[in-house]
């Protein structure tokens, strides 16, 4: 495997970032098992506070299993290993998962404790560009707006760690571009650690500062993306990262991946 300008590290290293504070995610020898199949095989991962990490992997590589483990939503799954996560963890799903019987503002502030929950909710809604929609029902919002509301619900909790499971997977291409910009902007402002699970290599390189590839229950590639933001997909270095990751994912010709998404990269 070629050494990349951005730094391509072996999987089982101590991580790319020098961690001085308590890490946002730390797993040691994490195992998750479905039946007699180990989906996560003694996985070691450290994510620093405020680090934007994307997790790539083919279907069945264990991406969602890892995310659900970190979110502690998998008590029924067999497993072992150490796992440390912060107290304030927010989760966003592929579907916006707004409760249809609560107005948007009540969805955003659901479970929020402490005074001024409502004001905080309104601020979060304004931040995602939904000011004035607080009294709407979820079904009155478009798909993109619903996902924005879900993002507001995740952010209003001021998470130290934001877990996102293909949050843009169900959106159309144009809405997705806007949401990428919004997510990055919110990230820069609030600086939570982010673990973004995606199957879209371009999305990973565009948004994250570190990209992991999960393969067969282990992290096979740990790549630091050293590009200034906002990132252009036309940048030749962007394409280098992209090609490296596609190769790692076992896609020999990058073009063949375009079945799952529109190719935004003009071919030179």
């Amino acid at each position: 495997m070629a050494t990349h300008s951005g730094g391509l590290n072996p999987a089982h290293g101590t991580g790319t970032t020098a961690v001085e504070e308590r890490p946002a995610i730390r797993t040691r020898r994490l195992v998750r098992r479905f039946g007699d199949r180990d989906v996560l095989k003694e996985l070691d991962l450290t994510v620093a506070p405020g680090e934007f990490t994307a997790l790539l992997g083919r279907s069945g590589s264990g991406k969602s299993t890892l995310l659900r483990a970190v979110a502690r939503l998998d008590h029924t799954v067999e497993g072992s290993g150490e796992l440390t996560v912060p107290d304030r963890v927010s989760l966003s799903f592929q579907d916006s998962r707004l409760l249809p019987w609560l107005r948007v503002i009540d969805n955003v502030t659901l479970g929020l404790r402490g005074p001024k929950a409502r004001e905080r909710g309104l601020t979060a809604l304004a931040e995602v560009g939904l000011e004035g929609r607080d009294r709407s029902w979820p079904h009155e919002l478009s798909g993109g707006e619903q996902q924005r509301a879900a993002l507001a619900r995740a952010l209003v909790r001021e998470p130290e760690l934001l877990l996102a499971d293909e949050p843009f997977g169900a959106l159309d291409a144009l809405t997705r571009i806007k949401m990428h910009g919004l997510l990055r902007e919110l990230y820069e402002r609030h600086r939570p650690a982010v673990l973004l699970v995606t199957h879209d290599v371009d999305e990973a390189v565009e948004l994250a500062d570190r990209v992991l590839v999960l393969e067969d229950g282990r992290i096979s590639i740990d790549l630091t993306v050293d590009l200034p933001t906002p990132r252009s997909r036309r940048d030749p270095r962007f394409q280098e990262y992209r090609d490296t990751l596609l190769t790692a994912l076992g896609v020999a010709q990058p073009q063949t991946l375009s079945e799952e998404k529109e190719s935004h990269v003009p071919h030179a």
């Binding site: 979110a71 939503l73 799903f93 579907d95 998962r97 409760l99 659901l110 479970g111 909790r157």
Partner: peptide
Amino acid sequence: SRYVELAEGLDLSRAQ
């Protein structure tokens, strides 16, 4: 069941 998962993710109390 996705709403149950959401409630868990948001740390809702049993009463909530």
